[in-house]
Each structure stands twice: as C-alpha cells, then as structure tokens.
Design a protein around this nucleic acid. Structure first.
Lengths: 130, 130, 130, 130
DNA sequence: GTGGTCTAGACCACG
DNA sequence: GTGGTCTAGACCACA
C-alpha cells in the first residue's frame, strides 16, 4: 500500500490520505482485516504530522471503513460495508454536481454512466497490485 | 432559477452556489445566453456577502460556464462546452474516490454506472422546470 | 453561561466543556438559537488552547446539540432533540453501570429512580439562572 | 459469570471489566463471598493482558467491591456497601451530564426517573441468571 | 472576524 | 509499543 500525498493540492492532506485508503480497500490492495501502519509510522512514512494521520484514521473509523482496536491499532473492517439508505443519498448528493459538469460538457447519461462504470471497473480489476 | 444555500453545510457557500448554477445550466433552467442576476442582487436574494457571490461567478467564468462583461453582467456561455482532455481527467480524478466508496459498499461497476447515468438522466429530463 | 474547568480532573477538558454546554442547554442558561462564544474567545476565557475548544464544539455538532454556521459561528440548535432509538439505547448503556453501583450500595429501583428524577428536576427548575 | 469485552469500544478494557463485575454483583450472578477467577485465568479467558485484569481488580478493591488476599485471591465482599455521602455525590456527579442529555432530548424528570428505575429493576430481577 | 488545517513536540493512559 | 490529549503558534480559506 503506497500512499502519495500532494502537498500542493488544495484538498486537505487528511482527506487525501482517507481517499487513498478507501481506494486501497476498494481495489483490494488492502485486504479485509489487514492492519494499517500505526499513526506514527504512517506519519513518518508520508512525511506529515501524526495529528494529521490521526484525523484521517478517525474519519475512516467514523465512516465505518476501519476499526480501531485498543490492543493492535487500526484494521480494515472485516464485514463488507452495506449500502444503507443514508450512504446512497449522500453519494448521490456528491455525484450530482459532477453529473451536471459532464452534461454541460456534452456527455449523455449513457456516456457518463459508462465513464463511471469504467472507473470503478479499472479500480477493482487490478486486484492485488500495490 | 431558485438557489438554495445550506449554511450549515461544510461545503463553502461559494462552491454551493457555483454547483447550483452548473446544475441549472445542465438541466436547462438556465438557458444559453441567459443572464444571471447581478452580484449584488444574487447576494441579497440568498443572503450572503457580495464578495462570496463574486467568487462563485469568477469561478464559473474561469471554468468556462459563463462570460462576464462589465456592462451586461454575467451570462451563460452560448457555445457548448467541449469535453477536452483536461476536463475529462479532472472529472475522473473527482469520480475516483466516489467510485471507491461505492465499491466498498458493495456496488458493482454496473450498479455504479447505472446509478450515475440515472442521476444525469433525471437531471436533464426535467428540462425547463424550476 | 459560566464555564468551569477542573484541570486536575482525569476527564479530558474537551469532554468537561462539552458536558457543561449540554447542561447549560438543559437548564436553560443557554437558549435555543443562542450563539456560543467563538472558539478563540472561549479558549481565552477558560484558559485552554483553541484546539481543545474546537474539539468540544465539533463533538457538540456531531451529537446534534449545536449547529455551526459558516457565517456566524456556533449556535444552539433551534429544534429540540428528538429521543431516537439509538440515543435511548446509548443512554441506557451509559446508565447501566451507574445503576449497578447504586444497587451494590443498597439502593432500590425506586430510590435510584427518585434520585435520577431529582437530579434532572433540579437541573431544569432553576431555569434562567447563571 | 460471563464477561464480554468490546475491543473496539472507546471505554478502556479495564473499565469494561470493572463495570461488568459490578453489574454481576448487583444482579446476583456473583454471590457475596464468591471468588473471582485468578488474574491470569481471567486474562486468558477474555484475551487481554494480565496487567489489565490486575488494574480492574485493584480498582474494584479500592472501591470496596472486592477484597484481595495474597493466598485466596480476589473475592466479593461479604458486607453490603453502605451509601456513604462521598459515594452519593460522586454518583450524582456522574449522573448529571446524562440527565442533561436526557432533558435535551425531551425527557421530563419523571420520564428519566422511570427509565433509570427500570434499568435497575431489570438488572436485579433476573437474579441468578447468566 | 470566523473556523479549519498543519506542524512541532510534550505528556499520559492503555495494554 | 499504541492512540489520545493538550499546548503553542503559523497559515489559510471563508464570509
């Protein structure tokens, strides 16, 4: 699991880290139950402060992607995430402006759907690679 | 064109406003060439600082959705936006973490593509309303 | 609204602050819609770091006691909190060990119920003070 | 006496263990004078460090729930715990924020008292089980 | 002015 | 060793 942070980006570091972990879980480079590096270790690895990593881990925990065991740190949750009504509407909410952007750039519903499906497919098909 | 701002949202107001204008253009409630309310008017309508509206309009201009003219104000661009390589990769970049979230919640590429297509379809089918 | 922090206590400062705000809302010394001091102001008032206050406010927001408006800071929520199944079971969970302690010290269910009712009654009856 | 520890909980393990012993004493699943498993045995049973169990036992001893003896190990006190002024105020102190939460969620003093009484009643009525 | 992000580093509770 | 708390202070985005 390689993490790359863009320090120039305007997206906060802790969000970038959170996103990459979610992507890692999605594409299988982080197995269920696998443990993430400790806060300090991750902080040292990617060159940020432990506080920042802590915030990412807390966010991932609150969203249900990982569990933090008192004994052994942070692990990817074993049970697959269930859709859940709240999650779906939240996702739709985030998708809406992107769909609008696509529409304004001439994409049809089919184009956009195909594009989105392709992104997810490419994400999951290279299971096992770093 | 009704604008609704959620002042409790963590999304900045100027982004919310920008998003709603883009959505308005996508679903046809803002016609090509139609002029947007003046900065001051819009600010008064939705109850925010003129400065904030200004930022949204500038963002929309920079992204090519509107043109601003000192005399005639701000109006929606006549020419349809072309896909453009940069735009497409930028969109993919924004879609990637959302696709990963969907995958973690058990959606297949097909599910996700269908969901995205549906969002865009619903967006454009109610052309002219609101 | 006077806040007093016990720096010797083993309960974290941010929890103490959160508790006192909840108590303030309960007994009416914080009205619905009333605004809390800004993070920096509160931090200066009680002599802690802004980060600590920030954490309390975020916690209160996540629990639904206050809303944080992008424009004007932190306000007590207008709508009264609804019971909600999750809240009730969480409260019962926290009450259980305390009930057990009471039982071990010879209190009957009636004693304990009366004691709890009295605590809440005293809390709300002095509406408006301090 | 079955002990169940939630390793993902934010409550420290030694507190969870202490709480469950107190609950056990309250509901009669631990009789007066009954001896608790040895530190090592308990640690092995619930899968935690002996150090952690030791801390729980010491806490229970300090609070007067059990007595510890180098030869015969740890057993539940024979004499019932008397209310004691200090205990009562400590309990009220712990109850106060919970009462405030209840009040914020619309519970009256009567509601809260009834809820608390019910919790204690259910705790003690199933004497002997588990 | 506000809250939010990040760094640097100390200290502590937990296991 | 772990994560969590707290301080001190800088910087930025937002309104």
């Amino acid at each position: 699991m390689l993490i790359h942070i863009d320090f120039e980006s305007e997206t906060p570091i802790y969000v970038q880290l959170r996103d990459q972990v979610v992507i890692g879980i999605a594409n299988g480079s982080l197995d269920k139950g696998e443990s993430l590096p400790s806060v300090r270790r991750m902080a040292a690895d990617i060159g940020v402060h432990a506080h920042t990593v802590n915030k990412s881990y807390a966010m991932l925990r609150d969203e249900g992607y990982v569990v933090m065991d008192r004994r052994s740190g942070c692990h990817v949750r074993m049970e697959p995430q269930l859709p859940g009504e709240g999650f779906r509407t939240a996702l739709e909410q985030k998708l809406l402006p992107l769909a609008a952007e696509a529409a304004c750039h001439g994409q049809s519903a089919g184009d956009f759907g195909a594009m989105c499906a392709k992104i997810l497919a490419e994400l999951t098909e290279l299971e096992g690679s770093s």
